[in-house]
């Protein structure tokens, strides 16, 4: 066993986990500020300069809240729900290439936790596990509203996973690989996938919104009809885990969209080949993070613009619009690839 390799990976995992936690933390702050600005308010501005310490205050508040476990709930599953939600949210970050390999002391260190040849499918597998956190949590609370919201959320996630997968197949046909690193490297040398796949990007983006339970697809936590959704009975940090997992999901899915369609760690108008290894890695990380933040801002922008879908509208959009569109997109892509290969 190569101990340096294990150490390097452990370090990378720690960094990635910390970064996604901090980003998720400050995403809550940015979200509230953003909402404030859109609604002609200031947003949080009391804790620290410009309210910059607000996430810390929120976190502390959640830690010190009383922990309520409903008496007729299933205790084990009740605790398992938020744990699963958090776990699956964090696990997705393992296959995203955060930048091009960096060179430290003669060693080439890949800035990707695991480059497995089924990278995309791994993401899908973990995302499909994320449904269980919601369902188990909703069911174990022993509350009808929580259960309804959990079922809604699960059916929404399953429906949109389909369209997401179909829109992705077109990208995979273009790249011929399931590994996220290969897909990114193709975009670094060639054009970004959004140029070839504008429709696929749009479908994937909409589905990502739905998978993250973001407005206008935030039916699982529809306050107006289901009280507070599947985490209604949760309090203290267990509630915090659910809410936090949503923000981590948002960060990871934005990073994924950036990797798949927006060139990953490719900085536009810069030829990475001319840069030395380490500086290329830094430029790449900056590029990926700025793309991710831009996408997060768009997510928030959409949330504070659009009202929530009705449930039948949601299902209609998913099954009757997005899936046929994704299928058509897939067929056209396949036909064009065949045609260009012949010609």
């Amino acid at each position: 066993m190569d101990w340096e390799f294990i150490l390097e990976k452990l370090l990378l995992i720690t960094v990635v986990v910390t970064v996604s936690l901090v980003v998720a933390m400050y995403a809550t702050y940015i979200e509230r500020k953003f909402a404030g600005f859109i609604q002609d308010r200031y947003g949080p501005d009391r804790a620290g300069p410009f309210g910059i310490l607000q996430p810390l205050a929120d976190g502390l508040k959640l830690f010190f809240k009383e922990e309520v476990i409903p008496s007729h709930s299933n205790k084990l599953l009740f605790v398992l729900g938020p744990c699963l939600a958090m776990l699956t949210a964090m696990m997705t970050s393992a296959v995203i290439p955060w930048s091009s390999p960096i060179e430290i002391g003669g060693r080439t260190v890949s800035l990707q936790i695991a480059d497995i040849n089924i990278g995309i499918l791994y993401v899908f597998g973990v995302v499909s596990m994320g449904v269980y956190g919601m369902m188990i949590g909703g069911w174990a609370s022993n509350n009808k509203f929580s259960l309804m919201a959990a079922l809604r959320g699960a059916s929404q996630a399953i429906s949109y996973e389909l369209a997401m997968g179909l829109s992705l197949i077109a990208v995979l046909m273009l790249s011929g690989s399931l590994s996220l690193r290969v897909i990114t490297e193709q975009q670094v040398t060639g054009l970004w996938n959004i140029v070839y796949q504008p429709l696929g990007f749009l479908i994937f983006f909409v589905c990502a919104l739905a998978e993250c339970n973001r407005a206008p697809f935030d039916l699982p936590e529809a306050e107006s009809e289901l009280n507070f959704g599947y985490h209604q009975e949760y309090s203290s940090m267990k509630l915090g885990f659910f809410l936090f997992a949503e923000y981590i999901n948002m960060f990871i899915s934005c990073a994924l969209i950036a990797t798949l369609y927006l060139g990953g760690y490719d900085m536009p108008f810069v030829n990475e080949a001319n840069l030395s290894g380490s500086s290329a890695a830094i430029v790449g990380a900056v590029a990926l993070f700025s793309k991710t933040f831009f996408l997060i801002l768009v997510f928030m922008w959409i949330r504070w613009t659009l009202p929530r879908f009705r449930y039948d509208q949601l299902m209609n959009l998913g099954w009757k619009s997005l899936i046929p569109l994704a299928l058509a997109n897939m067929l056209i892509t396949g036909a064009v690839i065949l045609w260009t290969m012949k010609g």
């Binding site: 600005f37 859109i38 002609d40 308010r41 200031y42 922008w301 959409i302 613009t305």
Partner: peptide, 24 residues
């Protein structure tokens, strides 16, 4: 639907530059 979503997003974007109604 997309075009109207885009128009709505433009409207919310203009609110970024409007006067804040809050009195601190």
């Amino acid at each position: 639907y997309l075009w109207n979503i885009f128009k709505g997003m433009l409207i919310t974007f203009t609110h970024f530059f409007k006067k804040r109604a809050t009195i601190k």
